[in-house]
């Protein structure tokens, strides 16, 4: 008997007979626990706000993103212009909200690439093991040897600029880490007694993979996916900040911040407020990911 088992017995709390328990009750208990974490709720609300304001920006602003107004150029933040205005008198808050869909789209593309390719690599590698595993993991090692941003830059060089190219580049950069985590989870679950019990009960490998290994590996992988959404947002913003994003006048967050850079000394808000907007989003995603991780542990 191992120490882990002994400890588990020490902390187990079986439900009293009169309570029914079950999946719904477990879900409710989990949600209950989350609802009691105010910071987590704020983080979720902020992410929801960013998503909603990206697709219905008119709910949150009366201005248009391209409405120039020389009379109100370079105004500091005020209740009328939350983030101030740029040198053409355009409302910065509005421009940030209208820039959201581009960045969100890029993030979703990047994340889809990372999740699909990473999951596929990780599952195939962890599940089949042996030579397949060695080959795939050596490939992942090679990908990891090229620092992520540089790998992304090479892809951008080859594909040219634009939101999609940047998204693809960032997505590919995330794949190796994702593949490793998935593989580690699959390997861990694969050797557990309940998988063996299912096998002994006559279940095919396909059934074991779909019903046991995937559902039980999914937790940490999903947590990582949320975390990687934050990573992708930073990377996409960085690439568009460096000038590889969408062509003007369309403005991703990174582009807005880069544009404001030239007026830092006179109009600091042009760079810093959109930057803060992005940073808060990433921070929220990190916090959500961390809370979920603690919950699933």
């Amino acid at each position: 008997m191992t120490a882990a088992i002994a400890e588990a017995i020490e902390t187990e709390r079986p439900l009293p007979v009169e309570q029914s328990g079950g999946r719904r009750a477990a879900l409710r208990a989990g949600l209950d626990q989350l609802a009691r974490k105010p910071v987590f709720l704020i983080a979720v609300l902020y992410v929801v706000f960013v998503l909603v304001s990206a697709f219905w920006p008119t709910l949150f602003t009366a201005h248009g993103p391209y409405d120039t107004n020389p009379g109100s150029a370079a105004l500091a933040p005020s209740p009328d212009h939350l983030f101030g205005t740029d040198i053409y008198g355009r409302d910065l808050w509005t421009r940030v909200l209208y820039g959201s869909p581009l960045t969100i789209k890029a993030t979703l593309i990047a994340l889809s690439i990372a999740v699909v390719a990473g999951l596929a690599l990780g599952i195939v590698s962890g599940f089949f093991g042996g030579l397949t595993d060695s080959l795939l993991m050596r490939f992942v090692d090679v990908l990891l040897a090229i620092p992520g941003l540089l790998l992304a830059l090479s892809i951008v060089t080859a594909l040219g600029y634009g939101t999609v190219a940047v998204a693809v580049a960032v997505g590919v950069g995330i794949v190796p880490g994702f593949a490793r985590t998935t593989r580690a989870e699959v390997l861990k679950v694969k050797t557990l007694p309940y998988v063996e019990a299912a096998r002994a009960g006559g279940a095919s490998w396909t059934r074991v993979l779909l019903r046991h290994i995937l559902p039980n590996s999914w937790g940490p992988v999903a947590v990582l996916a949320v975390l990687d959404a934050g990573v992708a947002i930073i990377a996409i913003a960085s690439l568009s900040f460096l000038g590889f994003g969408a062509a003007p006048p369309a403005a991703e967050w990174g582009t807005l911040i880069a544009d404001g850079r030239n007026y830092l000394i006179t109009s600091w808000w042009l760079s810093l407020l959109p930057g803060l907007f992005v940073a808060l989003l990433v921070l929220s995603l990190n916090h959500i990911s961390k809370t979920l991780q603690e919950l699933t542990r």
């Binding site: 760079s271 930057g275 921070l283």
Partner: peptide
């Protein structure tokens, strides 16, 4: 977690604005 959430260009611009300007 906070330090890892801020994009580097933001940190750099903030530093310039605050410490230089």
């Amino acid at each position: 977690a906070l330090g890892a959430s801020f994009p580097q260009f933001f940190v750099a611009l903030f530093a310039i604005q605050f410490f230089s300007f």
